[in-house]
Nucleic acid binder design. Sequence first.
DNA 1: CTTCTTTATGCGGCAAGGCGTATAAAATAG
DNA 2: CTATTTTATACGCCTTGCCGCATAAAGAAG
Lengths: 83, 83
Amino acid sequence: MTQIARTQSQLGNIIRRARKTAKMTQADLGKRAGLRQATVSQIESGDTDPSTKTVLDMLAALDLELVVRPRSKGSHDDIEDIF
Amino acid sequence: MTQIARTQSQLGNIIRRARKTAKMTQADLGKRAGLRQATVSQIESGDTDPSTKTVLDMLAALDLELVVRPRSKGSHDDIEDIF
DNA sequence: CTTCTTTATGCGGCAAGGCGTATAAAATAG
DNA sequence: CTATTTTATACGCCTTGCCGCATAAAGAAG
């Protein structure tokens, strides 16, 4: 299952979903990634523009990785990350 | 061609490579992404920790997109991004 | 409703990103 | 080698991410 992120909010949603799937709380994830629970909250909500390192740390803590690839691989434009 | 980025430097290398492939200068990319040439330089060099928005803007300007997926898809640990 | 857990907000503070402007240094062209 | 383009650095400024600490609000459990 590979998820496309073109905005911070989409990225936040992906992270939140992954965290729940992993049955972790924001505090758990924060601890693993070296972040505050508050920071995790803000990032998941998409109401901040996190640094790359912060994002990578969170993804690593969730056993996820980032991939860069040419756009529009199928190009279903993801009107909004509804699910 | 899908590239894994687990660190800022790897991300910077990916961007630089993509920019060159697209035959753009740092100034070109900067213009498209709304960034200074100097900023592009620093990010490509990996000596800064860019914000998510900045990275997404650069990727968009290069017609690239970000994908999140489970780690270790083959798990070749990428000792360092040599090429 | 009450209790416990989880998530969202708030405030002051420090560090760092990105900006404008400018220039040095390196690479490419001629 | 010289001229031009491209890339790397620098300084000061402003904004904002993330921190610690604390608390409010929202959910889940009893």
